[in-house]
């Protein structure tokens, strides 16, 4: 399976990596660079049902707090408790080991409106 082709990004810099009906959600490398040193994350409990755009998690840098929103509708099946003990992992491996939560995707149609990796790279280029 080509993992790259199944990643989608929001304009607010969340990614969702789809494997089967589960999407792994985190923040992009661009986002972690913009935020700077991450010192705290707050994760949702398994079972929480989220609508697209709902606050799913919180990430705090030295400077300020930001919300991570659900890229699509879904139910939280797991969150990455490793981040609670080591928030700095978000800076080191944002699109790998430092995922925030896994969602059982309720409406896969919503993925179509999100950007693929190439479109997101162009979008980010336009921001600098």
């Amino acid at each position: 399976m080509n993992v790259m082709s199944t990643v989608r990004y929001t304009k607010d810099h969340e990614y969702i990596r789809i494997e089967g009906d589960v999407g792994t959600v985190g923040i992009s490398d661009y986002a972690q660079k913009q935020l700077g040193d991450i010192v705290f994350v707050e994760l949702p409990a398994a079972g929480k049902v989220l609508k697209q755009g709902d606050e799913a998690a919180v990430v705090e840098s030295v400077k300020a707090a930001s919300e991570i929103n659900a890229p699509v509708n879904g139910e939280v099946v797991e969150s990455n408790s490793a981040l609670e003990d080591n928030p700095a992992l978000v800076n080191e491996d944002p699109e790998g080991g430092a995922w925030f939560l896994k969602l059982k995707v309720a409406d896969s149609g919503q993925l179509d409106a999100l950007m693929d990796a190439e479109a997101y790279a162009k979008f980010v280029e336009g921001l600098d």
């Binding site: 969340e14 913009q34 300020a64 930001s66 991570i68």
Partner: peptide, 14 residues
Amino acid sequence: MSASLENDLETNHH
């Protein structure tokens, strides 16, 4: 994401 990142982007954009 919202809040501070948005603010940072504002700073960089405009």
